[in-house]
Design a protein around this nucleic acid. Structure first.
Lengths: 138, 138
DNA sequence: TTCATAATGCACTTCCGTTGCATAGGGCAT
DNA sequence: ATGCCCTATGCAACGGAAGTGCATTATGAA
Protein backbone atom coordinates (compact mmCIF):
# COMPACT_ATOMS: atom_id res chain seq x y z
CA UNK A 1 0.00 0.00 0.00
CA UNK A 2 1.09 3.51 -0.71
CA UNK A 3 3.04 5.32 1.99
CA UNK A 4 0.92 8.42 1.67
CA UNK A 5 -2.29 6.48 2.10
CA UNK A 6 -0.84 4.88 5.18
CA UNK A 7 -0.09 8.22 6.75
CA UNK A 8 -3.64 9.41 6.22
CA UNK A 9 -5.34 6.25 7.37
CA UNK A 10 -3.21 6.03 10.48
CA UNK A 11 -4.62 9.42 11.41
CA UNK A 12 -8.22 8.67 10.55
CA UNK A 13 -8.27 10.69 7.37
CA UNK A 14 -10.02 9.19 4.40
CA UNK A 15 -7.41 9.12 1.63
CA UNK A 16 -9.04 10.96 -1.21
CA UNK A 17 -7.19 11.92 -4.37
CA UNK A 18 -7.00 15.54 -3.38
CA UNK A 19 -5.68 14.82 0.08
CA UNK A 20 -3.00 12.51 -1.26
CA UNK A 21 -1.85 15.18 -3.68
CA UNK A 22 -1.75 17.86 -1.03
CA UNK A 23 0.07 15.56 1.37
CA UNK A 24 2.67 14.78 -1.28
CA UNK A 25 3.08 18.46 -2.02
CA UNK A 26 3.67 19.23 1.65
CA UNK A 27 6.12 16.37 1.95
CA UNK A 28 8.17 17.64 -0.95
CA UNK A 29 8.20 21.17 0.32
CA UNK A 30 10.88 21.87 2.83
CA UNK A 31 9.36 25.15 3.94
CA UNK A 32 6.13 26.16 5.56
CA UNK A 33 3.38 26.54 3.02
CA UNK A 34 0.48 28.93 2.82
CA UNK A 35 -2.96 28.17 1.47
CA UNK A 36 -2.19 30.43 -1.46
CA UNK A 37 0.97 28.45 -2.21
CA UNK A 38 -1.02 25.27 -2.40
CA UNK A 39 -3.71 27.01 -4.39
CA UNK A 40 -1.24 28.20 -6.99
CA UNK A 41 0.21 24.75 -7.37
CA UNK A 42 -3.11 23.02 -7.81
CA UNK A 43 -4.72 25.63 -9.96
CA UNK A 44 -7.40 23.24 -11.11
CA UNK A 45 -8.77 22.66 -7.67
CA UNK A 46 -10.84 24.89 -5.47
CA UNK A 47 -9.53 27.14 -2.78
CA UNK A 48 -12.06 25.95 -0.22
CA UNK A 49 -11.26 22.31 -0.71
CA UNK A 50 -7.58 22.97 -0.21
CA UNK A 51 -8.36 25.13 2.80
CA UNK A 52 -10.40 22.36 4.34
CA UNK A 53 -7.83 19.76 3.45
CA UNK A 54 -5.17 21.68 5.34
CA UNK A 55 -7.56 22.24 8.20
CA UNK A 56 -8.25 18.53 8.36
CA UNK A 57 -4.53 17.80 8.45
CA UNK A 58 -4.10 20.16 11.37
CA UNK A 59 -7.16 18.86 13.23
CA UNK A 60 -6.04 15.26 12.81
CA UNK A 61 -2.55 16.08 13.93
CA UNK A 62 -0.37 15.46 10.93
CA UNK A 63 0.39 19.11 10.27
CA UNK A 64 1.40 22.17 12.24
CA UNK A 65 -0.31 25.47 11.81
CA UNK A 66 2.31 28.17 11.85
CA UNK A 67 1.95 31.85 12.44
CA UNK A 68 5.18 33.41 11.24
CA UNK A 69 4.13 36.97 11.84
CA UNK A 70 3.45 37.79 8.22
CA UNK A 71 -0.24 37.57 8.90
CA UNK A 72 -0.53 34.63 6.56
CA UNK A 73 -1.15 31.22 8.03
CA UNK A 74 1.42 28.63 7.07
CA UNK A 75 1.32 24.87 7.27
CA UNK A 76 4.08 22.31 7.70
CA UNK A 77 3.89 18.59 8.29
CA UNK A 78 4.81 17.40 11.74
CA UNK A 79 7.99 15.45 12.20
CA UNK A 80 7.79 11.76 12.83
CA UNK A 81 6.63 10.95 16.32
CA UNK A 82 5.46 14.47 16.89
CA UNK A 83 2.72 14.83 19.42
CA UNK A 84 2.66 18.59 19.31
CA UNK A 85 3.52 18.84 22.96
CA UNK A 86 5.07 21.84 24.62
CA UNK A 87 8.69 21.43 25.66
CA UNK A 88 9.23 18.36 23.54
CA UNK A 89 7.96 18.90 20.05
CA UNK A 90 7.60 22.60 19.53
CA UNK A 91 10.38 24.22 17.65
CA UNK A 92 11.52 27.47 16.21
CA UNK A 93 10.32 28.93 12.96
CA UNK A 94 12.50 31.23 10.96
CA UNK A 95 11.01 33.72 8.56
CA UNK A 96 13.31 35.28 6.00
CA UNK A 97 12.28 38.83 5.26
CA UNK A 98 14.12 38.71 1.94
CA UNK A 99 12.89 35.59 0.17
CA UNK A 100 9.79 35.50 2.34
CA UNK A 101 10.15 31.83 3.14
CA UNK A 102 9.48 30.28 6.50
CA UNK A 103 11.44 27.22 7.56
CA UNK A 104 11.29 24.99 10.61
CA UNK A 105 14.48 24.97 12.64
CA UNK A 106 13.79 21.67 14.29
CA UNK A 107 17.21 21.56 15.90
CA UNK A 108 16.19 24.34 18.24
CA UNK A 109 13.58 23.29 20.73
CA UNK A 110 11.77 25.89 22.73
CA UNK A 111 13.20 25.98 26.25
CA UNK A 112 10.93 25.55 29.25
CA UNK A 113 9.04 28.69 30.03
CA UNK A 114 8.18 29.70 33.53
CA UNK A 115 5.01 31.70 33.49
CA UNK A 116 3.73 33.82 36.35
CA UNK A 117 1.39 32.26 38.89
CA UNK A 118 -1.95 30.96 37.62
CA UNK A 119 -1.03 31.12 33.96
CA UNK A 120 -1.40 27.87 32.06
CA UNK A 121 0.18 27.32 28.67
CA UNK A 122 -1.43 25.39 25.87
CA UNK A 123 0.71 26.37 22.97
CA UNK A 124 3.99 28.10 22.25
CA UNK A 125 5.05 29.85 19.09
CA UNK A 126 8.56 31.15 18.58
CA UNK A 127 9.35 32.99 15.39
CA UNK A 128 12.64 34.59 14.46
CA UNK A 129 12.74 37.02 11.57
CA UNK A 130 15.86 37.80 9.65
CA UNK A 131 17.86 36.69 6.65
CA UNK A 132 18.22 33.03 5.85
CA UNK A 133 21.38 31.21 4.80
CA UNK A 134 20.58 31.22 1.12
CA UNK A 135 19.90 34.94 0.97
CA UNK A 136 22.96 35.72 3.08
CA UNK A 137 25.27 33.82 0.76
CA UNK A 138 24.07 35.64 -2.32
CA UNK B 1 5.83 70.65 29.26
CA UNK B 2 3.57 67.68 29.07
CA UNK B 3 5.11 64.26 29.58
CA UNK B 4 3.33 62.85 26.57
CA UNK B 5 4.61 65.58 24.31
CA UNK B 6 8.09 64.94 25.55
CA UNK B 7 7.90 61.29 24.66
CA UNK B 8 6.83 62.09 21.14
CA UNK B 9 9.34 64.86 20.55
CA UNK B 10 12.18 62.80 21.86
CA UNK B 11 11.39 60.32 19.16
CA UNK B 12 10.96 62.81 16.38
CA UNK B 13 7.21 62.54 16.23
CA UNK B 14 5.30 65.73 15.83
CA UNK B 15 2.91 65.89 18.78
CA UNK B 16 -0.47 66.33 17.22
CA UNK B 17 -3.70 66.12 19.20
CA UNK B 18 -4.55 62.72 17.80
CA UNK B 19 -1.15 61.27 18.54
CA UNK B 20 -1.21 62.52 22.10
CA UNK B 21 -4.59 60.93 22.66
CA UNK B 22 -3.54 57.62 21.20
CA UNK B 23 -0.33 57.65 23.21
CA UNK B 24 -2.26 58.27 26.39
CA UNK B 25 -4.66 55.49 25.55
CA UNK B 26 -1.80 53.06 25.02
CA UNK B 27 -0.15 54.16 28.26
CA UNK B 28 -3.30 53.50 30.24
CA UNK B 29 -3.85 50.12 28.67
CA UNK B 30 -1.95 47.34 30.29
CA UNK B 31 -2.56 44.92 27.46
CA UNK B 32 -1.64 44.84 23.82
CA UNK B 33 -4.07 46.79 21.74
CA UNK B 34 -5.39 46.24 18.26
CA UNK B 35 -6.24 48.88 15.74
CA UNK B 36 -9.88 48.01 16.21
CA UNK B 37 -9.59 48.54 19.96
CA UNK B 38 -8.26 52.03 19.38
CA UNK B 39 -10.87 52.63 16.73
CA UNK B 40 -13.70 51.73 19.06
CA UNK B 41 -12.37 54.00 21.75
CA UNK B 42 -11.96 56.99 19.47
CA UNK B 43 -15.11 56.53 17.51
CA UNK B 44 -15.04 60.08 16.25
CA UNK B 45 -11.75 59.68 14.48
CA UNK B 46 -10.90 57.89 11.29
CA UNK B 47 -9.52 54.40 11.11
CA UNK B 48 -6.79 55.33 8.66
CA UNK B 49 -5.48 58.08 10.87
CA UNK B 50 -5.31 55.74 13.82
CA UNK B 51 -3.71 53.09 11.65
CA UNK B 52 -1.05 55.51 10.52
CA UNK B 53 -0.57 56.84 14.02
CA UNK B 54 0.20 53.37 15.32
CA UNK B 55 2.44 52.73 12.34
CA UNK B 56 4.35 55.90 13.09
CA UNK B 57 4.80 54.85 16.71
CA UNK B 58 6.26 51.54 15.59
CA UNK B 59 8.48 53.11 12.94
CA UNK B 60 9.83 55.66 15.38
CA UNK B 61 10.45 53.03 17.99
CA UNK B 62 8.12 53.88 20.84
CA UNK B 63 5.82 50.94 20.29
CA UNK B 64 6.13 47.24 19.63
CA UNK B 65 4.15 45.54 16.93
CA UNK B 66 2.93 42.24 18.26
CA UNK B 67 1.66 39.26 16.40
CA UNK B 68 -0.07 37.09 18.96
CA UNK B 69 -1.26 34.50 16.51
CA UNK B 70 -4.83 35.66 16.39
CA UNK B 71 -4.20 37.18 12.99
CA UNK B 72 -4.84 40.62 14.37
CA UNK B 73 -1.90 42.94 14.80
CA UNK B 74 -1.51 44.29 18.30
CA UNK B 75 0.47 47.23 19.60
CA UNK B 76 2.08 47.88 22.95
CA UNK B 77 4.34 50.67 24.08
CA UNK B 78 7.94 49.78 24.66
CA UNK B 79 9.24 49.78 28.19
CA UNK B 80 11.50 52.57 29.30
CA UNK B 81 14.96 52.28 27.87
CA UNK B 82 13.82 49.73 25.36
CA UNK B 83 15.92 49.64 22.23
CA UNK B 84 14.08 46.72 20.77
CA UNK B 85 17.23 44.67 20.72
CA UNK B 86 17.30 40.92 20.62
CA UNK B 87 18.41 39.21 23.81
CA UNK B 88 17.94 42.29 25.94
CA UNK B 89 14.60 43.87 25.32
CA UNK B 90 12.42 41.30 23.65
CA UNK B 91 10.03 39.52 25.87
CA UNK B 92 7.26 37.02 25.91
CA UNK B 93 3.69 37.71 24.96
CA UNK B 94 0.90 35.72 26.45
CA UNK B 95 -2.41 35.39 24.68
CA UNK B 96 -5.35 34.17 26.69
CA UNK B 97 -7.68 32.11 24.56
CA UNK B 98 -10.52 32.72 26.98
CA UNK B 99 -10.66 36.48 27.49
CA UNK B 100 -8.76 37.05 24.26
CA UNK B 101 -6.35 39.50 25.81
CA UNK B 102 -2.67 39.65 25.08
CA UNK B 103 -0.29 40.78 27.79
CA UNK B 104 3.43 41.38 27.89
CA UNK B 105 5.28 39.15 30.31
CA UNK B 106 8.27 41.39 30.63
CA UNK B 107 9.76 39.29 33.37
CA UNK B 108 10.56 36.58 30.89
CA UNK B 109 13.24 37.57 28.45
CA UNK B 110 13.78 35.49 25.39
CA UNK B 111 16.88 33.34 25.88
CA UNK B 112 19.74 33.54 23.38
CA UNK B 113 18.97 31.61 20.26
CA UNK B 114 21.64 29.85 18.30
CA UNK B 115 20.65 29.76 14.68
CA UNK B 116 22.24 27.54 12.05
CA UNK B 117 25.17 28.87 10.05
CA UNK B 118 24.57 31.94 7.90
CA UNK B 119 21.26 32.83 9.46
CA UNK B 120 21.02 36.33 10.88
CA UNK B 121 18.25 37.36 13.24
CA UNK B 122 16.60 40.74 13.23
CA UNK B 123 13.63 40.11 15.39
CA UNK B 124 12.24 37.50 17.72
CA UNK B 125 8.64 36.90 18.62
CA UNK B 126 7.62 34.47 21.33
CA UNK B 127 3.95 33.93 21.97
CA UNK B 128 2.44 31.56 24.48
CA UNK B 129 -1.23 30.76 24.27
CA UNK B 130 -3.25 29.50 27.17
CA UNK B 131 -5.34 30.71 30.06
CA UNK B 132 -4.35 33.80 31.99
CA UNK B 133 -4.39 34.27 35.75
CA UNK B 134 -7.68 36.13 35.83
CA UNK B 135 -9.52 33.52 33.81
CA UNK B 136 -7.98 30.68 35.78
CA UNK B 137 -9.13 32.10 39.09
CA UNK B 138 -12.73 32.49 38.00
C1' DT C 1 0.42 86.47 4.42
C1' DT C 2 2.10 82.93 1.59
C1' DC C 3 3.96 78.79 0.63
C1' DA C 4 5.60 74.07 1.57
C1' DT C 5 5.19 70.08 4.17
C1' DA C 6 2.95 66.94 7.00
C1' DA C 7 -1.27 65.13 9.07
C1' DT C 8 -5.94 63.91 8.54
C1' DG C 9 -10.20 62.04 6.56
C1' DC C 10 -12.79 59.61 3.02
C1' DA C 11 -13.33 56.16 -0.41
C1' DC C 12 -11.89 52.32 -2.22
C1' DT C 13 -9.21 48.06 -3.11
C1' DT C 14 -7.16 43.80 -2.05
C1' DC C 15 -6.18 39.82 0.38
C1' DC C 16 -7.15 36.08 3.30
C1' DG C 17 -9.93 33.25 6.19
C1' DT C 18 -14.24 31.36 6.66
C1' DT C 19 -19.06 29.71 6.01
C1' DG C 20 -23.50 28.14 3.63
C1' DC C 21 -25.35 25.57 0.44
C1' DA C 22 -25.85 22.67 -3.46
C1' DT C 23 -23.71 18.85 -5.91
C1' DA C 24 -20.98 14.73 -6.66
C1' DG C 25 -18.82 10.55 -5.29
C1' DG C 26 -17.73 6.36 -2.49
C1' DG C 27 -19.02 2.76 0.62
C1' DC C 28 -22.55 -0.08 2.66
C1' DA C 29 -26.90 -2.62 3.21
C1' DT C 30 -30.44 -4.52 0.92
C1' DA D 1 -27.18 -3.51 -9.34
C1' DT D 2 -29.91 -0.24 -6.73
C1' DG D 3 -30.82 3.02 -3.43
C1' DC D 4 -29.24 5.42 0.59
C1' DC D 5 -26.22 8.00 3.59
C1' DC D 6 -22.35 10.38 4.71
C1' DT D 7 -18.49 12.81 3.40
C1' DA D 8 -15.80 15.40 0.23
C1' DT D 9 -15.90 18.80 -3.13
C1' DG D 10 -16.96 23.06 -5.66
C1' DC D 11 -19.12 27.52 -6.12
C1' DA D 12 -20.44 31.80 -4.32
C1' DA D 13 -20.44 35.00 -1.11
C1' DC D 14 -19.36 37.31 3.31
C1' DG D 15 -16.53 39.76 6.65
C1' DG D 16 -12.61 41.53 8.76
C1' DA D 17 -8.37 43.69 8.51
C1' DA D 18 -4.44 45.84 6.15
C1' DG D 19 -3.17 49.00 3.06
C1' DT D 20 -3.27 52.90 -0.75
C1' DG D 21 -4.60 57.18 -3.48
C1' DC D 22 -6.17 61.42 -3.30
C1' DA D 23 -8.31 65.53 -1.73
C1' DT D 24 -8.54 68.51 2.30
C1' DT D 25 -6.94 70.63 6.39
C1' DA D 26 -3.62 72.00 9.83
C1' DT D 27 1.08 73.36 10.99
C1' DG D 28 5.31 75.82 10.76
C1' DA D 29 8.79 78.49 8.39
C1' DA D 30 10.05 82.36 5.41
Amino acid sequence: MDVLEKILEQNNIKPTAMRLLVLQFLLNKKVATSLTDVENYFDKSDRTTLYRTLKTFVDKGISHKIDDGTGITKYALCEDNCHCEIDTDLHLHFHCTKCNETVCITAYKIPPIHLPKDYTAENVNLVVKGICDKCNSK
